[in-house]
Design a binder for these strands. Structure first.
Lengths: 193, 193
DNA sequence: AGGGGAGTCATACGATTGTCCAAAATTGGC
DNA sequence: GCCAATTTTGGACAATCGTATGACTCCCCT
């Protein structure tokens, strides 16, 4: 197993991840990734047979990235309510969210459009499922029933997605902060049911 | 002024509108619009100098379309609260929302990505501004202060966007219906402040 | 030390992209 | 029914897209 090989593969995935986020998947060409990495285009096909394979690797990378962030929320406190609070405040700590929106939401919206063949929606539900199940776990730990916990998790994700979308459309940092506080306040009222 | 000219121009805009919604702006080619309309590609450039000009016309068309829908909400009842309820239930009546998401939200997410030159974000804020100001008017008519009305309008739009996004990601009609009812319930608690 | 696989690189392919143009066809005013 | 303006048409354009290939270099293993 080549050690340098995985290094280049990782560089490709990292550059593609950033470019897919900033410019979108369809608007990112192999030349763009080539320019960003310094690697010739022909080299990509040693690691990935097709562009969609790169997308798969990027999605996998984002799953890993969000998984680490959830771990950080877990280690912040042992209180499930505090963990959810930390989760809600997470978009506030990203500088790029206001410019390019949510990495999951915008990519899902893009891949939700009709392609020629593959229905890529399956990919992004994986990332959303990660967050969804984690939220369900927190709500269940707070004594909520499983069915109700799933409803609350969906509501929470929907509210965060909507807030980030509108904040990025209007480039409105103040709204992002205020709406995040409102979500946290809503969480508080929901817990003491 | 040619009468047939405007007919063809309208056909182009209608086909582009549908294709931009179903397949996305960047993924829609001139050939696609040509196939959908039966008009040769060369004819497009008599009415539009560039592809972005077609996008402008499509956005203008969507503004008109949403404006008519708001008028329908206005004529449904004279009660501002009932009008807002009708507005919230609007995504429920669209069959395609579950498949392709919100026509405004998804296009905004796509155009919010970094292009080479033009910052097209200005276009979509126009459509969101239409809904935003209309909601503000309804809240003000209910006796809410202007500043608070704008906050409520942003909250309402954000919640609807988030619900539609997650519902389309999971293709979950039941969630779309339940979450819409929750938004309407939230509206009720907000009004009697 | 040299054979072989892992990894790199330049180049090229056919298809498609947005753009443009110069005729042909159509139209309306007189 | 003629002429000028408007509209239509089909093809050509340079560029770029994702894909593919084959020769090249490097390094490890026996």
């Amino acid at each position: 197993m080549g050690t340098k090989g995985n290094i280049n593969r990782q560089r490709i995935v990292e550059a593609a991840d950033r470019l897919f986020y900033v410019r979108g998947y369809n608007q990112t060409s192999f030349s763009d990734i080539s320019d960003a990495t310094g690697l010739p285009r022909g080299n990509f096909y040693y690691y990935f047979k097709t562009k969609e394979d790169i997308l798969d690797a990027v999605v996998e990378s984002r799953v890993e990235s969000f998984s680490q962030m959830l771990d950080a929320c877990m280690q912040a406190t042992s209180d499930p309510y505090g963990r959810l609070q930390a989760f809600v405040s997470m978009p506030l700590q990203s500088e790029q969210v206001l410019q390019y929106g949510c990495p999951i939401g915008t990519l899902s919206a893009e891949l939700g459009k009709a392609q020629s063949e593959h229905d890529s929606r399956v990919h992004m539900t994986a990332v959303f499922d990660l967050l969804r199940h984690w939220c369900v776990d927190q709500f269940v730990a707070l004594g909520v029933s499983a069915a109700r916990a799933d409803q609350l998790a969906m509501d929470l994700l929907a509210r965060m997605q909507g807030v980030v979308l509108l904040a990025s459309v209007y480039n409105d940092r103040a709204f992002l902060q205020r709406a995040s506080r409102d979500i946290q306040a809503w969480l508080e009222t929901v817990i003491k049911h």
